[in-house]
């Protein structure tokens, strides 16, 4: 039959071209640029203490951005993820302070609630086939109302506090919200949770069957289902993963500040999505990376603290955020065109 010969119209895929199609590329370049910029402005920024300082906000954001990245690769959004960090924190602190629960038991209750919300989000999306943007916007608003309503009804104020006196607080705090000394510099323990989450998510994405299914349901759900991928289950588990991440972050923040505001986490949901998009996730799904989302979170941490280190007004942060988002989306569009370019 026909002999196999190389197609003369195709140039070899050199190492540079391979590197260029990595989804993380844009975020790595961005991170280097932002680091160089703020390092030039402030010597403290590039010191070990400075690094520990800006990795702190990056860590809690990063945990969420990685989970949201998985969900976005799977083709869905979760707008309720931000407010859910507040909900889980409120539940934990309320149970521990007003009902005398052990902190660990209160955390577990928060996890159960988070899993239930994630499951409900996922089930609604796969059953109704409504856009997840709308479904989770609904749960977002409902949770926002619940957080405020229940907190006010129970405490008469808009916050719950006093976690420090609860049983088991010290152990839980040292595990989730303490500090670890590395070479004389105090790093928040959340940074290590974040690294762990990133490594785990990357392994799942690149080296497990579930990872293949996540890319597939986001890339073309019908095609995935036609070859036997459990698309509905994959999506529901993704929503539950995001909810679990929200619970982890909610618990970390509650243990750290020992109190939770009823409006906590609101507005964060878009920052998670922005970090994931800067990290190379396509809004249309099927493409992206967990490491990229983490690097997106690093860019945020650097900008958040760097503006303070440089002695500027913090208002500039929002401007920076918008500019990064635009640049990243443009870069991603080029990558997508390259990857989807069809020869006929």
């Amino acid at each position: 039959m026909t002999t196999v010969t190389a197609d003369e119209r195709v140039a070899g895929a050199g190492p540079l071209r391979r590197l260029l199609v990595r989804p993380e590329l844009g975020s790595v370049v961005g991170a280097i640029a932002v680091f160089a910029f703020f390092s030039a402005q402030s010597p403290v920024f590039r010191s070990a203490d400075g690094v520990a300082n800006w990795l702190d906000p990056a860590s809690t954001l990063g945990i969420m951005a990685v989970a949201i990245a998985l969900l976005m690769i799977g083709g869905e959004f979760d707008l309720s993820a931000g407010v859910l960090t507040g909900t889980t924190g409120l539940v934990m602190v309320t149970l521990a302070t007003r009902y005398g629960w052990n902190v660990w038991a209160a955390m577990l209750a928060g996890l159960v609630l988070a899993l239930a919300v994630g499951f409900a989000n996922g089930l609604l999306v796969v059953r109704t086939k409504l856009p997840s943007f709308i479904v989770t916007l609904g749960t977002f608003l409902m949770l926002q109302g619940l957080n405020l309503g229940v907190t006010k009804a129970l405490t008469g104020t808009v916050q719950v506090s006093g976690l420090r006196r609860a049983e088991g607080y010290q152990a839980a705090r040292s595990l989730l919200a303490g500090s670890v000394s590395v070479g004389g510099v105090e790093f928040r323990v959340a940074i290590f949770w974040w690294i762990g989450v990133t490594v785990l998510a990357t392994w799942v994405l690149m080296r497990s069957r579930a990872g293949n299914w996540i890319f597939a349901v986001g890339g073309n759900e019908q095609a995935a289902r036609a070859v036997g991928v459990p698309a509905a289950r994959t999506k529901i588990v993704l929503f539950m993963t995001t909810a679990t991440a929200a619970w982890l972050v909610g618990s970390i923040l509650a243990l750290r500040f020992t109190s939770v505001q009823a409006n906590s986490g609101i507005g964060q949901e878009f920052i998670y999505i922005i970090a994931a998009v800067i990290g190379g996730c396509l809004l249309t799904g099927g493409y992206g990376s967990a490491i990229g989302a983490s690097i997106g979170a690093v860019i945020f941490g650097m900008a958040d603290k760097g503006i303070v280190f440089a002695g500027w007004d913090a208002d500039w942060f929002k401007f920076f955020l918008g500019a990064m988002l635009l640049l990243a989306t443009l870069a991603n569009r080029l990558v997508r065109r390259y990857a989807e370019e069809v020869r006929r």
Partner: peptide, 28 residues
């Protein structure tokens, strides 16, 4: 029209839904 997932590599598409795994961690 829905035979393949364009953004995924040829080998990932080839094994989609029936991926070979190895080891105790069921690694791809």
């Amino acid at each position: 029209d829905l035979a393949m997932i364009p953004l995924m590599s040829v080998w990932r598409n080839f094994f989609l839904g029936s991926e070979p795994v190895t080891g105790p961690l069921r690694r791809l």
